[in-house]
Amino acid sequence: MENWFYNPSITFYMWSISHLVFIFLTLFTLFAFYFLRNQLIPYRDNIRILVGWALILSRLSLDIWYLITNTWNLNHSLPLELCSIATICCGIMLLTNNKFLLEVFYFIAIGGAIQAILTPDLQFGFPQFRFLQFFIDHTLLILAPLLLIWLYQYSITWRSIWKSFLTLNLIALFVFIINILIDANYMFLREKPQAGSLLDFLGPYPYYILFLEIVCLIIFSILYIPFYIKRKNKYKKAAASNN
């Protein structure tokens, strides 16, 4: 049990075989759901609820792991990291089939989870619980908004970018205040992660936060492109049919 549940001597190495394997598994899962989306529509309610509860239970299991392993700490164990917030909100989004949460967390969840999977701030290596929970959680985090888009034909508008961006900044402001009060670094708002991440390319503190705002808008705009293309093609077909 010790080897898979809690063993600090088994550390995580970025771009190791286990890391690459789970990146592949994430991509495989997403492509499988995309190509099977039409066949899955009759089961969409069950899938939505199952993934929604899986996200909620994923975060709950992490809290239980912190307590069992005696590693819970006020400065790093609260659900105040962006992906932890997104995990809880995306779980609620799926369980309630909430369109507003989809508009907001389509960008936040997918953008944040991709960065986390590629450059994890993770200490525990495979096959430990924390490693498995981390990658399963972030894979489901990417999948969650896509389920509502692929299986329920929900769409994202240009205004959704600004709803998401404003919400992200309100979350960051709230978390920054908490960081000051408890001397923590949730969402890396006071310093960069020690293990290294994409933030290393954005300059020193506090300038990387300003550049991160620009990067977020760029990423959000890229994530909007498929909907822009779809909407543009729809207008072209409508104009052609009128002619």
Results as ranks from 00 to 15, higher is better:
Pro120Lys: 09
Leu122Cys: 00
Leu122Phe: 04
Leu122Asp: 09
Gln123Met: 11
Gln123Lys: 12
Gly125Asn: 00
Gly125Asp: 06
Phe126Ala: 03
Pro127Ser: 04
Pro127Arg: 05
Phe129Ser: 00
Phe129Lys: 02
Leu132Gln: 08
Leu132Arg: 09
Phe134Leu: 02
Phe135Glu: 06
Phe135His: 07
Phe135Val: 02
Ile136Arg: 06
Thr139Cys: 05
Leu141Ala: 01
Leu141Arg: 08
Ile142Ser: 09
Leu143Gln: 04
Pro145His: 06
Pro145Tyr: 08
Leu146Asn: 01
Leu147Gln: 05
Leu148Ala: 11
Trp150Thr: 08
Trp150Asp: 04
Tyr154Lys: 15
Tyr154Asp: 15
Ser155Thr: 15
Thr157Ile: 10
Trp158His: 14
Trp158Thr: 13
Arg159Cys: 10
Arg159Leu: 13
Arg159Glu: 12
Ser160Trp: 07
Ile161Ser: 08
Ile161Met: 07
Lys163Pro: 09
Thr167Asp: 04
Thr167Arg: 09
Thr167Ile: 04
Leu168Phe: 08
Asn169Arg: 06
Leu170Ala: 08
Ile171Asn: 03
Ile171Trp: 06
Ile171Pro: 05
Ile171Ala: 03
Ala172Cys: 04
Ala172Trp: 00
Ala172Asn: 01
Ala172Met: 09
Leu173Arg: 00
Phe174Val: 05
Phe174Gln: 08
Phe174Ala: 05
Phe174Arg: 03
Phe176Glu: 05
Phe176Trp: 13
Phe176Asn: 11
Phe176Val: 02
Ile177Asp: 02
Asn179Gln: 01
Ile180His: 13
Ile182Pro: 07
Asn185Val: 03
Asn185Gly: 02
Tyr186Gln: 08
Tyr186Asp: 09
Met187Pro: 01
Met187Ser: 02
Leu189Glu: 04
Arg190Pro: 00
Glu191Val: 10
Lys192Val: 08
Lys192Arg: 00
Lys192Trp: 04
Gln194Arg: 12
Ala195Tyr: 11
Ala195Met: 13
Gly196Gln: 08
Gly196Tyr: 05
Ser197Asp: 04
Ser197Met: 09
Ser197Gln: 00
Leu198Asp: 01
Leu199Phe: 10
Leu199Ala: 02
Asp200Asn: 10
Phe201Val: 13
Phe201Lys: 13
Phe201Cys: 11
Leu202Ser: 06
Leu202Thr: 01
Pro204Ile: 00
Pro204Gly: 02
Tyr207Ser: 12
Tyr208Ser: 00
Tyr208Gly: 06
Val215Cys: 12
Val215Met: 12
Cys216Pro: 04
Ile218Asp: 02
Ile218Thr: 10
Ile219Val: 14
Phe220Ile: 11
Leu223Phe: 13
Tyr224Thr: 11
Ile225Cys: 11
Ile225Tyr: 12
Pro226Tyr: 12
Phe227Ile: 12
Phe227Met: 12
Ile229Pro: 07
Ile229Ala: 09
Ile229Lys: 11
Lys230Tyr: 14
Arg231Ala: 15
Arg231Met: 14
Arg231Asn: 15
Lys234Arg: 15
Lys234Asp: 14
Tyr235Lys: 15
Lys237Ala: 13
Ala238Pro: 09
Ala240Met: 14
Ala240Arg: 15
Ala240Cys: 12
